[in-house]
Structures are given as structure tokens and as C-alpha cells.
């Protein structure tokens, strides 16, 4: 990947992120922040590659911490986002099994 191509990817991805979020209702701000937090958990693949290429004990230690943290980011981000969004239901969806509150 040449520098210019990388720059184009950066620019287009930045606009994509802006457009995707720009019309989001306030009711979804917290789940969406959590969801985007999950998406940058992709750092896991980079951490795996970095640890995969580490040689000295220092590099291996930092790489190990990196993979551990990145896995936490990805898994934790997924779990809390999924838990939140799973609860969002419309009146129509509830009408069938109207379960009483506790």
C-alpha cells in the first residue's frame, strides 16, 4: 500500500464514520459509543501480529500485555453493547408476551 493510497483510505473512512453517526438519535448514544468502542477492538489483530514478531523478553512482555488488553477491549465491548441493545424493544414487539414488571 503506497502512502497516497493509504491517505485516500484514511480520508474516505473518516467521512464514512461521520456519515454513519450523523443522524443517530440521542436514545442510542450510549450503545453506539459502546459499539464503536467494540469496533476499535480490531486492535487485537495488530497486537497478535506484534507479539507474533516479538523476539526479546521485553518485546514479548509488552506484546503479551497488548494482546491481553486488546482481547479485553474486543470481548468486553461486544458483551456490554449486546446486552444493552438486546433490551431495546418496541411496543409492537412486546405486545405478544407482555410480561409484568418485577
Amino acid at each position: 500500500m503506497t502512502g497516497m493510497v493509504a491517505l485516500y483510505i484514511f480520508m474516505l473512512a473518516a467521512f464514512t464514520g461521520y456519515e454513519v453517526i450523523s443522524r443517530v438519535p440521542v436514545i442510542l448514544h450510549t450503545p453506539l459509543m459502546s459499539g464503536s468502542n467494540f469496533v476499535h477492538g480490531i486492535v487485537l489483530v495488530g497486537a497478535m501480529v506484534a507479539l507474533g514478531g516479538a523476539h526479546t523478553p521485553l518485546e514479548k512482555t509488552i506484546g503479551f500485555i497488548g494482546v491481553l488488553l486488546a482481547a479485553g477491549n474486543a470481548v468486553g465491548g461486544y458483551v456490554v453493547t449486546e446486552r444493552m441493545l438486546e433490551m431495546f424493544k418496541s411496543s409492537g414487539a412486546r405486545a405478544g408476551g407482555k410480561k409484568g414488571p418485577h
Binding site: A14, T16, G17, Y18, I21, H29, M33, S36, V39, I42
Partner: peptide, 14 residues
């Protein structure tokens, strides 16, 4: 690159 940049710009807007 793509996931990080998307989150970077979406997060800035948020």
C-alpha cells in the same frame, strides 16, 4: 486503518 478511522471520526462527532 479503516475500523480505527471510522471510530475516530464517529467518536469525534459523538
Amino acid at each position: 486503518i479503516i475500523a480505527g478511522t471510522v471510530v475516530g471520526s464517529a467518536g469525534t462527532l459523538l
